[in-house]
Design a protein around this nucleic acid. Structure first.
Lengths: 227, 227
DNA sequence: GTGACATTGTGAAAACGTTCACAAGGTCCC
DNA sequence: GGGACCTTGTGAACGTTTTCACAATGTCAC
């Protein structure tokens, strides 16, 4: 905790987190991200009919240290078998359960500009356990977007639709000036997870989790390494 | 260039970096990302005709600790004035120079699928000091993409165009199976910075910097916090 | 069954990043 | 021009994350 600072549960590039779990230990945010990485690697292995994997193999595939893999997994239980490794299918199932991606999560996107449209058309999300079927904008130019025909609602209907459709996660791709206002509204409507593509930090109550994806920052910081 | 089996200079979500600078100290990757954040905040201040800013104000705006702001900046020199703060315009210029975004960097995007198309149409990059005017795919469906009419080349022309146009940074949005092969080719053609949207770790020689943007991971890890 | 082998889970150490706290030094009002 | 006031730059303390290293434990071939 940043001492006597304002409340705020964000995290993005910076690390630092908290979160109760079944047990009672705090799980670092970085561990959660790696869990997701492990899940994906396990899915690939499963597709190739591999039935066991060691922490060393997993670590190599993902560019990590094997002790880190074991420690990450140990946060959540004992999944491995000494002298054998981890059973691929079983571990994958357990991790998906821990991540909560073994069910469908309803996702809405707000701000149908170029980037928003792109993400809607992309469709990659719908595979992974997400149902991204709602879009909002202040001006509805097209009634649906993308091959999946995601309907676009007027932003005035935001709270109503979020509540009715039980939307749990929101992707923000609005102009910077609008970000805080929209964030306040979705939080008010009960959303507690936001993926923010807007290059602007937003303030939220502590129970709301915000992840930032900042494309400009990624590009600029790469620029630095061009010597 | 199929298999340089080198270590690896990537970093993405995980922290850990190094990089020589004018002086001789290693600059953590997280510091570089925050530098980019500072630059943006300074640009906003400048737009509002603010002429000075203290580390405390900057920290508050970005949700950081003021000592961290000072320390980050101190990696690169003494920009502040005790009892006064930092001169906005001057600091912004210096940071842009440090980041190397005070010149135009040529950027190509490889893989014109949904996401690739979206990023091309988005156009947000071209503002910040990047010139994203080349796209590649194995199959050229449209000759140009987006309002900016970015020409799409056949992937067979990759090396030739990269060299001719002096492309320094590449955005990868190809299918996972193709990622490593394409990465090898662009590196072979002289590119040393890659922004990889493909959910697959790629191996590169140490001088090549890879940043990962993994949308699925962001979504999944948010899912965890939905309890 | 037994024994050589492989691999886990985890304390302890090391590395790294953040925050504290304060001396040094510039500002700016009177 | 003087002095109260700010704010920087930074060593040291602190906290977190990663890595090491190894005892414990299960595997598997014979």
């Amino acid at each position: 905790m940043p001492g006597p600072k304002n409340p705020n549960s964000e995290d993005s590039t910076p690390e630092s987190e908290h979160q109760e779990l079944s047990g009672d230990r705090k799980i670092p945010a970085a561990v959660i991200k790696r869990l997701s990485l492990y899940t994906r690697a396990l899915q690939n292995l499963e597709r190739n009919k591999v039935e066991k994997v060691s922490s060393t193999e997993l670590a190599k595939e993902l560019g990590l240290n094997s002790a880190q893999v074991r420690k990450d997994l140990a946060y959540f239980g004992q999944f491995g078998v000494p002298g054998f490794g981890y059973p691929v299918g079983e571990l994958r199932k357990k991790l998906k359960h821990i991540l909560g991606t073994d069910r469908k999560i309803n996702v809405a996107l707000i701000g149908v500009g170029h980037l928003g449209k792109a993400l809607l058309s992309y469709g990659g999300f719908n595979r992974q356990g997400f149902r991204m079927r709602w879009a909002f904008d202040i001006e509805v130019r097209d009634k649906t977007i993308g091959a999946e025909k995601v309907p676009v609602y007027n932003i005035s209907e935001l709270e109503q639709v979020v509540r009715r459709e039980n939307i749990e996660l929101v992707i923000l791709t609005v102009p910077a000036e609008a970000a805080q206002g929209i964030a306040d509204r979705v939080v008010g409507a009960g959303v507690s997870a936001i993926l923010n593509f807007v290059p602007k930090r937003i303030q939220t109550p502590p129970h709301v989790k915000v992840h930032y994806v900042d494309l400009a920052i990624e590009m600029e910081s790469l620029s630095f390494y061009l010597r």
